[in-house]
């Protein structure tokens, strides 16, 4: 059963802004990434999941409940980190977490304390004087401490230093281990690569592609960059039948793209040449989406 199901969700703010006909489905235990540039509609989608905005068309169902009509039911399952961090008018982080626990009906603060320790967060600090990173950590603790089944995170790593981001991603993986469903938006591909099972890309309010991370890791072809020590070898290699996608004669470099089945063949044939180095160029999420966008551009040109 899909834990989060977004059906034809549309919110038109006019002038091409908004989200249009979003269709997504997040399965139980899945970590779902949601990527897009600033203003592409990530937050608008998430606000619909949280029941803060009313859809013009379509709807969002969480655990079978309509997130607008039954928003209270939905929130029994969902924890949320907002994209913009602003705390209620309270004095310290501790005070805020206590108030939040009271609203959640949470008695046991063990998990909250564990999270604080892990994120090295001193909650006794004054909320108003907290750095952006500290605020973000406080927000993370406030969302995760209730230990709910679904996490909706709007750019949760904003403001965290690289080390803390690592820690946060560890926490996310821990949560995933526990079988939680996570919906997480970001504009950084690498952190989604490390945690997500599937990633959707939104561009100008439209979903342009949904990709499974297994597909990214298990591409049918591999790309290698090869540099030769001399130009003779370089020229000779150019005449072989491997699919060369890029040539940099000034460095005696070629980039080849070959089916996985041909890898050993390539290795064998390379023994004939003197190589300076050989490196695999990994296929990343970023490459994937760049390709998708390039393709879309070409298609739209063709249409014209």
């Amino acid at each position: 059963m899909a834990v989060i199901k977004i059906n034809h969700l549309t919110k038109d703010y006019g002038e091409g802004r908004g989200i249009f006909d979003i269709d997504l489905s997040v399965e139980k235990g899945e970590v779902f990434g949601y990527v897009g540039t600033n203003g592409s509609g990530k937050t608008t989608t998430i606000r619909h999941i949280m029941g803060f905005l009313k859809a013009q068309l379509g709807n969002v169902e969480v655990m079978g409940f309509d997130s607008w009509k039954d928003s209270v039911e939905v929130k029994k399952f969902v924890s949320y980190i907002p994209g913009e961090i602003a705390f209620p008018d309270l004095r310290t982080g501790t005070e805020f977490l206590k108030a939040q626990a009271e609203l959640l009906g949470l008695k046991n603060m063990d998990y909250a304390n564990y999270l604080c320790e892990k994120l090295q967060l001193d909650t006794s600090a004054n909320l108003k004087r907290m750095s952006k990173g500290m605020k973000q950590k406080t927000a993370i603790v406030a969302a995760l401490m209730a230990n709910k089944d679904i996490l909706v995170l709007d750019e949760p790593t904003t403001g965290l230093d690289p080390l803390m981001r690592e820690t946060f991603l560890e926490i996310i993986l821990e949560e995933k281990e526990k079988g939680k469903t996570i919906f997480m938006s970001s504009h950084m591909f690498d952190e989604l690569e490390d945690t997500c099972d599937r990633v959707a890309m939104i561009q100008n309010g439209h979903i342009v592609d949904i990709v499974s991370m297994t597909d990214i890791y298990n591409t049918p072809t591999k790309t290698y960059k090869i540099e030769f020590t001399n130009s003779t070898d370089f020229k000779n290699f150019k005449h072989t039948r491997y699919k060369i996608i890029r040539v940099q004669p000034q460095y005696n470099q070629v980039t080849v793209n070959i089916p996985n089945a041909d890898i050993s063949k390539l290795m064998k044939s390379l023994t004939k040449y003197k190589l300076k180095y050989i490196a695999e160029i990994e296929y990343t999420l970023e490459n994937h989406f760049k390709d998708v966008l390039k393709k879309m551009k070409e298609e739209s040109k063709n249409v014209q």
Partner: peptide
């Protein structure tokens, strides 16, 4: 406006 209402409304508290 500040967004802090999100914390209250992300708990099972009706509007």
């Amino acid at each position: 406006d500040s967004g802090s209402m999100a914390y209250v409304l992300s708990t099972p508290t009706k509007r």
